[in-house]
Amino acid sequence: MVRTSPTFRRRRLARRIRYLRERAGLTQEHAACELDMSTSALSRKENGDVITSVHEARSMVDLYDIRDPELLDLARAARERGWWRAYGVADRGYVDLETEACAVQELSLMYIPGLLQTEEYMRAIFVADSGMRPERNVENDVSVRTIRQRRLADPEQPLELTALVDQAALERPIGGPQVMRDQLRHLLEVVQLDRVELRILPKATGCHLGMAGAFVVLEFPEPEDNDVLFVSHPVGSVHVEKAGEVQQARVVFERLFAQALPAEQSMRLIERAAAELQ
């Protein structure tokens, strides 16, 4: 089943209504007056801060004198709830981004990336992150993450993952030795997927550019959707869309990728880490 992101649909809707107004040769002030709304209200809709209703979209189609069925479809889709909301998950805005992405580059320093985790490894992380969290909430988080993982092998809505993982993440026995062994063996299996590329940054690398913090760069299939840099922190997250800043993160990732072990050596290091767990 293809899953869609309401926030991304809202942003696409915003870009569309702005494009249609500009194509019609109307200023925001003129269009807002004709649409019986304030200029600031129309501005918020064209920036994606506020959702444009289907009724408002119809009025825009009439005002701009254009037939655009896609606009009405976007207006309807923008009001839908994200699929993950049914699980009560606080995703810090990441699942919304990944749902629409076609490719992910992730630098992970202390954990195995979420898309490559086993369920027991996930549970150990969710429990540790939340302290005395209700078991139901932990299981909902696990469910959402496992649903996300399916896209790595989904022919209809594929997702490509390039992951750089610091060796420290292989040696931290999250969940205990057995859970960690299973997790490392799982890595050896999942890297066989065509859409997964995994490289390990060995300790011998020493100090490297990525030590400032983990991050994810997401790429989207629609040309008008800017790539996004996502950085999580203890009390929230940061989404960066400025092209220059996202490109800086890509350069860091590419340099680290060049420093990482090649695929075969990365797999051998994972095998050795699994064998050494007591």
Rank of each mutant, 00 (worst) to 15 (best):
M1L: 07
V2R: 15
R3T: 00
T4P: 03
S5H: 04
R9M: 06
R10C: 02
R10E: 02
R12V: 00
L13W: 08
A14R: 05
R16Q: 12
I17L: 15
R18K: 12
H30L: 10
C33L: 15
L35K: 12
S38A: 11
S40A: 13
D49F: 14
I51G: 12
T52A: 11
T52N: 06
S53A: 07
V54H: 12
H55C: 08
A57V: 03
A57K: 14
S59C: 15
M60I: 11
D65G: 12
D68W: 13
P69E: 03
P69W: 11
L71E: 02
L71I: 00
D73M: 09
A78K: 08
A78S: 12
R79H: 10
R85K: 08
G88C: 05
G88S: 03
A90K: 13
D91A: 10
G93Q: 09
Y94H: 09
Y94N: 01
D96F: 07
D96R: 15
E98C: 04
E100W: 12
Q105G: 08
E106S: 14
E106K: 14
S108T: 03
S108D: 09
S108F: 06
Y111Q: 13
Y111T: 04
G114T: 01
L115H: 01
L115D: 00
Q117R: 11
T118Y: 08
E120H: 13
E120V: 00
R123A: 08
I125M: 13
I125S: 08
V127T: 14
S130Q: 13
G131N: 08
N137G: 05
N137C: 06
V138H: 08
V142F: 04
V144E: 01
T146V: 04
I147S: 06
R148L: 02
Q149E: 03
L152V: 00
P155H: 07
P155F: 05
E156I: 04
Q157F: 02
P158E: 01
L159N: 02
L161D: 01
L161K: 10
L164E: 08
V165K: 13
A168P: 06
A168R: 14
A169M: 10
G176R: 09
P177R: 11
D182I: 02
R185V: 00
L187M: 04
E189D: 10
V190G: 05
V191S: 14
Q192H: 14
D194W: 11
V196H: 04
R199L: 02
G206P: 05
C207I: 10
H208L: 09
H208N: 12
L209P: 06
G210N: 05
A214I: 01
F215P: 01
V216G: 00
E219Y: 07
E222N: 13
N226Q: 13
D227W: 13
L229A: 07
S232E: 14
P234Y: 00
S237I: 00
V238H: 05
H239G: 04
K242N: 12
A243F: 09
A243G: 06
G244Y: 07
Q247P: 01
Q248K: 15
V251L: 14
R255Y: 05
F257K: 15
F257H: 15
A258W: 06
I270L: 07
R272V: 02
R272Q: 12
R272L: 10
